[in-house]
Simulated assay, not measured.
Amino acid sequence: MKIVRDATLHQRILGDIEARIVSGEWPPGHRIPFEVDLAADYNCSRMTANKVLTQLAKSGLIERRKKSGSFVAQPRAQSAVLAIAEIEAEVQSLRLSYSHIVHARSKRRANAADKQRLELSEAASVLDITCIHQAGAAPFCLEERLISLATVPEAEAETFDTVSPGTWLLKRVPWSAAENRISAVSAGASVAILLDIEKGTACLVIERRTWSPAGPVTSVRLTYPGDRHALVAKFAPGGEG
């Protein structure tokens, strides 16, 4: 009978903690009660409490820190590898408020690096934009974007104060081809400052280029702190492409 009781308590404790996390009662960073406290609260063994915390950690709901205890994990946004997702939608999927800040915006003649990024065959004007996307009060993603003004001349008059460059382009400029390049990098000094993370923090970088029938549209580099984002790809056996 003790085995049945322990199993029932395990599910009850697990359900109680999951409910508090999912409802937002225990937000990201909230300290979970220690094993000894859970054992006392539920009149169970420390082993049962430990098994519950281990299961929660494996599911990604909490993170266990040596000598510090267990804490509600920061949510991780997911985006499809082959899709062009709006960052605002990614943030809202985490049930957090979204905002963005235009950190820098300038129009200039394309240099050699710009021509390579956008695959421009001749000198042209580009719009160079840096945005910081926020989830709540915290930086979520750094956007570094070039827009070809030869292909999208109307972008020159847009401030992007009320709508982010990526969202604006998706709604205004049909694209016919896209390319994604995904890599893991350590945050340099300037990126660390803008994302409010430590220099050297592991980051996920998505570099994307899009084209329309009129020519290259944009090249963007999106940098996410590595512990806050995941990429998902769905495919079927024997599928083409």
Score class of each variant (00 low, 15 high):
A57V: 09
Y42A: 04
S125H: 08
R46C: 13
I17D: 02
E154D: 06
F140N: 01
A83E: 07
F71R: 02
P165N: 02
E207V: 05
R5N: 04
R64K: 12
V36Q: 11
E158W: 01
S125A: 05
L169R: 13
G166S: 12
T48S: 10
H10M: 10
N43W: 07
P216C: 00
V22E: 10
K199D: 15
N50P: 11
G69Q: 09
S68F: 14
V191R: 08
K234W: 14
N50E: 10
S190F: 11
A230P: 12
V4Q: 13
G15K: 03
I206K: 07
I21T: 04
K2S: 15
A189V: 09
H10S: 08
A230H: 12
H10D: 10
S219P: 09
A39G: 05
Q92T: 12
G136Q: 07
Q11S: 14
S219I: 08
A19Q: 07
H133D: 02
H229Q: 07
S97A: 03
H30R: 13
A135D: 02
A73W: 08
E240G: 14
A73E: 05
Y224L: 01
A40V: 04
K115N: 12
H100T: 00
Y42W: 11
R228Y: 10
G241I: 05
A80T: 10
S212I: 00
I193A: 15
A178L: 10
V52A: 03
W168D: 09
K66V: 12
I13T: 06
D128Y: 00
P27N: 03
P225R: 04
W175E: 09
V173A: 04
Q78Y: 15
V126C: 04
C131I: 00
R64L: 06
T218F: 15
L149P: 02
S212K: 01
T223Y: 00
I206L: 14
L146P: 00
E158C: 10
S164G: 03
L94F: 06
H103F: 04
P153E: 00
A19N: 07
F235C: 11
V126L: 02
K58Y: 06
M47K: 08
T167D: 06
L127Q: 02
R5Q: 14
Q11E: 13
F140D: 01
T130D: 01
H100E: 00
T201Q: 08
V91Q: 05
Q134S: 12
L14K: 08
R228N: 05
E119K: 12
A77L: 01
R209H: 07
S121L: 15
R46G: 12
I147R: 01
V22L: 11
L146V: 08
E63Q: 12
S70K: 02
L82A: 05
R208F: 09
H133P: 01
S106A: 08
A184C: 12
M1A: 13
L142H: 00
V91G: 09
I87Y: 06
G238H: 07
A80I: 15
T8M: 11
I101G: 08
Q11D: 15
S183K: 07
E63W: 11
A214L: 06
A83R: 06
S212Y: 01
V173G: 00
A19R: 11
A135C: 07
R31N: 05
T48Q: 09
V22T: 15
Y224S: 10
G136T: 08
V185A: 09
R5V: 13
A104W: 09
V36F: 14
I32Y: 01
M47S: 09
E144H: 03
L170E: 06
